[in-house]
Design a protein around this nucleic acid. Structure first.
Lengths: 129, 129
DNA sequence: GTAGAAGTTGACATTGACGTCAGATTCAAG
DNA sequence: CTTGAATCTGACGTCAATGTCAACTTCTAC
């Protein structure tokens, strides 16, 4: 498929796809005329990239990480080096702290929402308090 | 306490504390000379601000949200308006999706780490494979 | 009062993943 | 071949929190 279809199917802008390629995260074949050509695998790949970005990893770390991930089809292309494992372990710890923080934030939001709901309770106009 | 101590105790730079004030997230008394003076409550407040930032809320939303949060001491100063509740509900949903993504990212990292550990297993030089 | 630490405002820089636009080229259908 | 949609490269803009530096003022301990 070409870049437009991939963008639609993965929910990522064409700009971002080209950016991913520039960062070494996503390879593409080229037509004789220079247009990018992607296989089906690209959709999963792009989604995975998005998820990793969302977890706060930057392009460089994702680029190091991706070759070590088991693709949908087969086995990883590379095994993480000890140095990379150390980095990734640190990232995992950061992600764990991030999850903790997110749960706390959600609690804060829930409390505010609940408090408001109690005071501005759904009042169907047919019921008095 | 003054800004330096608050920065140390909350783990946030002085620069950020002044920024928070400029954004309306953090109020400070002033000494006659113009130096900021904070109460003990400020530490919790700053930590909460950080947590909300980490959850991807921007200054504006945090500014709207904070008055509606029950402080350590007492009750909320304001009740969220219906419009704010709607916004916060959307944010909560976003946070939930974020948590899901984070868990998936963590799984990816775990797999890579585990795969590497299996192949580069701790080899105490006294054991052969 | 004086020195040095700490604080003040203001401005500019940075970072990274994009958005956006321009101008040229390629592709696909008739 | 032509035409319009899709794609290409390259450059510049954005956003938001924070770093950083400069020049100045205030606080605190002696």
């Amino acid at each position: 498929m070409r870049i437009g279809e991939l963008a639609r199917r993965s929910g990522v802008s064409e700009r971002s796809l080209r950016y991913y390629e520039a960062q070494g995260l996503l390879r593409a074949e080229r037509t004789p005329g220079g247009h990018r050509e992607y296989g089906e695998w690209a959709v999963d790949r792009v989604v995975r990239i998005q998820v990793l970005y969302a977890a706060g990893l930057n392009s460089k770390k994702i680029a190091q990480l991706l070759p070590c991930v088991r693709d949908a089809d087969g086995r990883p292309n590379e095994i993480a080096t000890p140095a990379l494992v150390e980095t990734l372990t640190a990232e995992r710890d950061r992600i764990n702290r991030m999850i903790t923080d997110l749960l706390r934030s959600r609690d804060v939001l829930d409390e505010v929402i609940d408090t408001a709901s109690e005071n501005t309770i759904t009042r169907p106009a047919s019921l008095a308090s």
